[in-house]
Design a protein around this nucleic acid. Sequence first.
DNA 1: CTTTGATCATGG
DNA 2: CCATGATCAAAG
Length: 228
Amino acid sequence: MHPPSSPPASLNELLDRAQALAGFTLGELAELANIAIPSSFQRHKGWSGQLLELWLGAEAGSKPQQDFPDLGVELKSIPVDNTGFPLETTYVCYTHLTGISQLDWESSNIRNKLSQVLWVPIQGDRAIPPAARQIGSAFLWQPSSEQLAILRQDWEEIMEKIALGQIESITARQGEALQLRPKAANGSALTDAIGQQGKIIKTRPRGFYLKKNFTHQIIQQAFNPEHF
DNA sequence: CTTTGATCATGG
DNA sequence: CCATGATCAAAG
């Protein structure tokens, strides 16, 4: 068994690749791919996601688009506890804080990324060393009309505040499913934003994240569909 | 214990 | 700096 050398040609091929990883530990997959295994994620926070990209054949890089653009699929790993509850929020995308000419959800980057997501649960309990963390059953998700409406409302409320120069009053508590949080290498990173009276100010870069209750609902829906 | 705000690594 | 992959850790 070895990582694929090319992107999946079809959705079924992608799903087959993902399902084949279920049950393996991160350590096993890293070893098969000849990749060094970190003893902690403290300095390797994105390691799991990048390992999955390798094994699923995603294009490397950091382009503001889906991981599998030809298939219309975004890849997300999600750390879960032994009951399947998410242990962390899920980063979705970077946020532009200026040049917001229109609040157009349908053509937004976040709408595109969340239109179809391949979720890959991974044991995330901090007591389990990275090498021993097991991969779960991946599943494909498309937001329901209800979920889409919540996401859209959260996004529009947040973007409106940004456009009105109220970025500094937005906290992670705002939003039912989405939240806006700092997203940068460190505290010294600054970017342009709209301030009061429409003046350009400098602020910490932000990104959109999915709250845990929302991703938990997605996971429940996938494994207990009869309850929905 | 949980969550918000901060941070780490990498490639453009 | 932007944007990706995320988790850390101080604060509540």
